[in-house]
Amino acid sequence: MSGPILEVASLSKAFGGLVAVNDVSFALAEGELLGLIGPNGSGKTTTMNLVSGALAPTAGEIRLDGAPISGLSPSVISRAGVARTFQLVRVLPGMTAVENVVAGAVFSRAGLWGVAAEATARRLLGRVGLEERAELPLSAMTYIDQKRVELARALAADPRVLLLDEWLAGLNPTELQTAIELLKEIHADGMTIIMVEHVMDAIRSLCDRCVVMNTGAKIAEGDTAAVLADPHVMAAYLGDE
């Protein structure tokens, strides 16, 4: 029995006087799909940014498969095996869909190049349902398709842990259903995922376990159904009364 694939220990991040993440700890087993939830401004995205290396923590440690990664640069963390999507979608607008996904595969943990990288990119674009639009430049794509490209790009990095930052936000009900099915498949294939999400239906049907944050601190952790029924969690979402 190996240890957790990702471990977050007493993590804190302060911006000047504002403590955005306050002494948060949780662990993630290989193959698990963890939901990171909480009201707006509770520090979820900051936590994701700390894990991916976009920010350096003020205190605490993050370990990937036992090795500390906290404070390393995002490029090093990417090669160690963390890939992410962004809360506000970030694509490479001047490049085609294939090139966008290849960009995920070349310098990351996957380390593919040339024919192999392109084959992977086309396969993953097929997986997110974009094989026919593979040659389109990203600037000519809809918001939803851009989000799909972002997911394919993150998968192309062959990550050990995949971070999805509100990847389901802004989808209509039909698209949401398709997207949930897609994530289910990816998870079933063994991908370890942390998802920051507000869409409760998605959390209920996808997440094995949830961590709940409020004003920077972890207020609950456990089985999704139990956590969502917790009065503290309901109070955090709805206010104290």
């Binding site: 490479l92 001047g94 490049m95 995920g104 070349v106 943990r109």
Partner: peptide, 24 residues
């Protein structure tokens, strides 16, 4: 080469470049 491709990615979005392993 990879260097040229990396420069194109950097030119499009440095944040993405960093998060996918490019030493900008």
């Amino acid at each position: 080469a990879r260097l040229g491709f990396a420069m194109r990615v950097i030119g499009n979005d440095e944040v993405v470049a960093r998060h996918f392993g490019i030493e900008v």
